[in-house]
Simulated scan of single mutants.
Amino acid sequence: MFQFKQFSITQDKSAMKVGTDGVLLGAWTPVEKATQILDIGTGTGLIALMLAQRNSFSNIDAVEIDISACLEAEENFKSSNWKDRISLFKTSISLFKPTIKYDLIVSNPPYYTDTFKSEKTKRTLARHVDGLSFKTLLSYSKKWLTDKGICTYIIPYKEENDFILLALEMELYLIKQTRVKGRKELEYKRSLLCFSKTPEDCEKKELIIEIDRHIYTEDYIKLTAPFYLKM
């Protein structure tokens, strides 16, 4: 179990454990104006719970295809203070047909587009683009996003340009971008991206996680302090 300040995550059965990517996306995503939220590929429910903590007026639909992850997400949601505001759907987005549109769609999508696929089927499904392509994800987001809504993702930095161009083809416009690196001297590792249906000036920033091993930057502490116990 992974204990946060206001909730806990059981993750024994899920292929994907609590990680920095999910925490970053859950803490960084603009959630203040969102009433209806969709979390695509919720896994253990981490991001859905973080968004529920940050916005007490939101209702969240969480979709997950993996049965083991669903069982743990269900347990994590039920044990939280926000169980009445989070609904879990055990399905793929290709089969999920909501009755509403969303003010915010969020996803920590599959990646590893050019690496050897894991022998472990569940981890491969959870983290490989064969399970959910960027094109499918963006197309679905465009369809179910309200006119003034936003969608946010965290992806490998090396995929950033292709992802932004693909979004642009679907008339989703980049409005917020934060490139993430582990330490100042290292290369960028992740990109946090926010899109809307209406073009506007893009806010571009950089986030460095550590000054040295386990010595975190002020920016990272400020971002994650509402969640991590020791921040």
Rank of each mutant, 00 (worst) to 15 (best):
residue 97 K to Q: 15
residue 58 S to R: 01
residue 62 A to P: 08
residue 22 G to T: 04
residue 70 C to I: 07
residue 67 I to E: 14
residue 1 M to V: 12
residue 108 N to G: 02
residue 125 L to C: 10
residue 114 D to H: 14
residue 226 P to H: 07
residue 1 M to A: 12
residue 21 D to P: 01
residue 65 I to G: 01
residue 182 G to M: 06
residue 23 V to T: 07
residue 88 L to Q: 07
residue 146 T to L: 13
residue 2 F to D: 09
residue 143 K to W: 00
residue 121 T to Q: 15
residue 112 Y to G: 00
residue 56 S to P: 08
residue 145 L to I: 09
residue 76 N to V: 11
residue 118 S to L: 14
residue 189 K to Y: 00
residue 3 Q to V: 05
residue 213 R to W: 08
residue 92 S to E: 12
residue 156 P to E: 07
residue 177 Q to N: 13
residue 113 T to D: 07
residue 221 I to F: 04
residue 72 E to P: 12
residue 82 W to D: 08
residue 106 V to T: 02
residue 100 I to D: 03
residue 42 T to D: 14
residue 190 R to D: 00
residue 100 I to Y: 06
residue 6 Q to E: 10
residue 25 L to E: 08
residue 110 P to E: 04
residue 176 K to E: 04
residue 197 K to N: 14
residue 167 A to N: 10
residue 62 A to R: 04
residue 94 S to F: 12
residue 213 R to P: 02
residue 154 I to K: 01
residue 206 E to M: 05
residue 202 C to I: 04
residue 144 W to C: 12
residue 163 F to M: 01
residue 223 L to R: 00
residue 78 K to T: 05
residue 141 S to D: 11
residue 83 K to A: 15
residue 177 Q to A: 02
residue 72 E to R: 13
residue 143 K to M: 10
residue 211 I to E: 10
residue 98 P to F: 09
residue 216 Y to S: 00
residue 10 T to I: 09
residue 76 N to A: 12
residue 189 K to S: 00
residue 8 S to K: 15
residue 90 K to N: 15
residue 112 Y to H: 14
residue 15 A to D: 01
residue 47 I to K: 01
residue 14 S to R: 06
residue 131 G to L: 03
residue 191 S to W: 00
residue 165 L to T: 08
residue 183 R to S: 13
residue 230 K to G: 01
residue 127 R to S: 11
residue 28 W to C: 02
residue 83 K to D: 11
residue 205 K to C: 06
residue 62 A to Y: 05
residue 83 K to G: 00
residue 58 S to H: 03
residue 17 K to G: 09
residue 53 Q to A: 08
residue 213 R to F: 12
residue 37 I to Q: 08
residue 129 V to H: 02
residue 175 I to H: 07
residue 81 N to V: 04
residue 167 A to Q: 07
residue 37 I to C: 09
residue 98 P to G: 09
residue 110 P to G: 04
residue 122 K to E: 15
residue 144 W to A: 10
residue 4 F to R: 02
residue 205 K to F: 03
residue 69 A to G: 08
residue 25 L to K: 07
residue 136 T to S: 15
residue 21 D to V: 01
residue 19 G to M: 02
residue 18 V to K: 04
residue 205 K to T: 12
residue 70 C to P: 03
residue 36 Q to D: 15
residue 149 G to W: 05
residue 55 N to M: 09
residue 105 I to M: 11
